[in-house]
């Protein structure tokens, strides 16, 4: 039975809702232009539902054809009016757009079905951005290096711990936002907690470093020589003082 030329299906389409409070051509045009300039691609060819639910009751009459034309000029594609006040029905119908009754297919359902990064309400995109950032703050895997880090090389574990299974040569530099573990001789420079994490520590099998640092507090090799030189050691911060202890 594949003879049908079409099939009707129910579907949810994500659209921006433009909630109109009041309308004067100049203000509306200026405000819309400012919004669009923030994210031109976001507003390009975007379907828009114009909501009149919050329209001021005693607002002067609006030239809706002009409003639609203005939206189109900025790349928006108005597709429907929502929650039209009584008395405006015929005027709105004349524009050719669909009329949706208030409280249907609106904010109540769209945020649940739409993917998170698409703001359901255009004027508050900042809120949505914040949610995305929160998702990225989840645990990041440690960076593991198995080959020697040579003089002149620099390895940075951004937002995580750094684990080096080989030697760190003199003249090499390793950095991590978290802890640093070195299972070969540590002869270069090691900086843990470079973004200020005072809890970060450096652990190594053989401490022969040129410099060790935790959250900006550092010690040079001369002072390390008296502490745990060429021995397994950890470096940590206690009361703003850098401690080096044998493991």
């Amino acid at each position: 039975m594949n003879q049908l030329s079409f099939q009707l299906k129910g579907s949810v389409v994500t659209a921006i809702v433009l909630e109109l409070y009041r309308y004067s051509r100049a203000d509306f045009s200026a405000e819309l232009e400012a919004k669009v300039r923030q994210a031109p691609m976001f507003f390009h060819q975007t379907p828009v539902v114009i909501s009149l639910e919050k329209l001021e009751a005693n607002a002067p009459s609006i030239d809706f054809t002009d409003l639609i034309a203005l939206c189109r000029d900025f790349g928006l594609r108005p597709m429907a009016f929502k929650g039209a006040p009584a008395g405006l029905g015929e005027e709105l119908q004349a524009t050719g757009l669909v009329l949706i009754p208030a409280g249907q297919g609106g904010r109540a359902t769209v945020p649940e079905t739409a993917p998170a990064p698409v703001p359901a309400v255009a004027p508050e995109p900042e809120v949505v951005v914040r949610t995305v950032v929160e998702e990225k703050l989840v645990h990041r895997p440690s960076k593991i290096i198995t080959r020697p880090i040579r003089s002149g090389q620099q390895v940075y574990a951004e937002g995580s711990d750094l684990i080096v299974m080989a030697a760190v040569s003199e003249g090499a530099e390793i950095l991590a936002d978290g802890h640093i573990h070195v299972y070969g001789p540590l002869r270069g420079r090691a900086l843990a907690g470079v973004r200020g994490d005072a809890q970060a520590r450096i652990f190594c099998q053989s401490l022969e470093a040129e410099l060790v640092s935790v959250a900006g507090n550092f010690k040079l090799s001369d002072s390390l020589r008296e502490l745990a030189w060429k021995a397994p050691a950890q470096v940590y911060l206690l009361d703003d003082t850098l401690h080096v202890g044998a493991l």
Binding site: P148, R150, G152, Q153, G171
Partner: peptide, 13 residues
């Protein structure tokens, strides 16, 4: 020795 170490780093990258 240090210069050789440096060149080994370049060989790795």
């Amino acid at each position: 020795v240090r210069d050789s170490d440096r060149i080994l780093g370049i060989l790795q990258s």
